[in-house]
């Protein structure tokens, strides 16, 4: 049985973990390496690092951070944020990242998906979608949630799947930071339209949210940040709950 995955996400700014509410106003949540190790020990199935600084000068420090993290954890981890070309991908993979998450650059240059999947294998390429419901239509946003591309999220999901993406990281901007649960409808829609794993993101507050997004949203994995960083709950507790509900998890 393939276990449903729980993935803590560490939003990194200036080498610190931060978490925004609706993609704005950030507040520091701790040391990334320390947090990464504690998640590794608390049965996290994977880790996700999103560099929200992503300015050119900061890239080098991110590389160093990725190296440091990879020395200390023995579960897979992905890195995203500000990745613009094949070189960025190669540098991060060479520094110890297992998968790379791409958002804006994939929209600006969709051929990058094909090229990256061919070069590094589909399994290492995650395409991230930041999605917001605009008048009943799910729209893809880029540039850290600042720019509406007006691209339909379902159509774009299908396209990235066809171009060779290995997974989709689906963030609901409407739910992100609200702690009202994952966007089940959006997750289900995307999951039904692609044949690659969908990682749901945005809105998690409790174990039931995970149960719902796995059962009804058809997500393969669920990502959360603040509830773990601020120790409102922990991964083991959520997994124990999911197991009582008959959902396969690694304990």
């Amino acid at each position: 049985m393939l276990a449903k995955r729980i993935i803590p996400c560490l939003d990194i700014k200036d080498n610190k973990v931060v978490k925004g509410i609706n993609f704005e106003s950030v507040k520091s949540a701790g040391d990334p390496v320390e947090l990464a190790v504690s998640y590794n020990d608390d049965l996290a199935d994977e880790l996700m690092f999103l560099d929200i600084t992503a300015s050119f000068e900061k890239r080098k420090t991110l590389i160093e951070l990725v190296k440091e993290i990879s020395k200390n954890i023995f579960i897979p981890f992905s890195v995203g944020g500000g990745i613009s070309d094949i070189n960025d991908i190669r540098n991060l993979l060479n520094s110890g990242a297992d998968k790379i998450s791409i958002n804006t650059s994939a929209v600006l240059n969709p051929d990058l998906i094909d090229e990256a999947a061919k070069k590094f294998g589909s399994s290492t390429i995650i395409i991230a979608l930041d999605v917001k419901n605009i008048n009943g239509r799910y729209c893809v946003f880029t540039h850290g949630g600042r720019k509406n591309t007006n691209i339909d999220a379902i159509a774009w999901s299908k396209e990235v799947y066809n171009r060779g993406a290995g997974e989709i990281l689906l963030t609901s901007m409407d739910m992100d930071g609200t702690k009202k649960g994952y966007d089940i409808k959006l997750t289900n829609l995307v999951a039904q339209n692609v044949k690659i794993p969908v990682i749901a993101s945005g809105g998690a507050s409790c174990a039931e949210d995970f149960e719902n997004v796995f059962n009804e949203g058809l997500a393969s994995a669920a990502l959360a940040a603040s509830i773990f960083h601020y120790k409102e709950t922990n991964i083991t507790a959520i997994k124990n709950y999911l197991r009582t509900k008959g959902i396969g998890v690694r304990i």
Binding site: M1, L2, A3, K4, R5, D45, S122, S123, G166, E167, K195, I196, P197, S220, A221, R250
Partner: peptide, 15 residues
Amino acid sequence: NSDIVPIIPHVGWND
């Protein structure tokens, strides 16, 4: 076999 397996790649923790 994509006729049998709904999601490829096989990614994650399996026993």
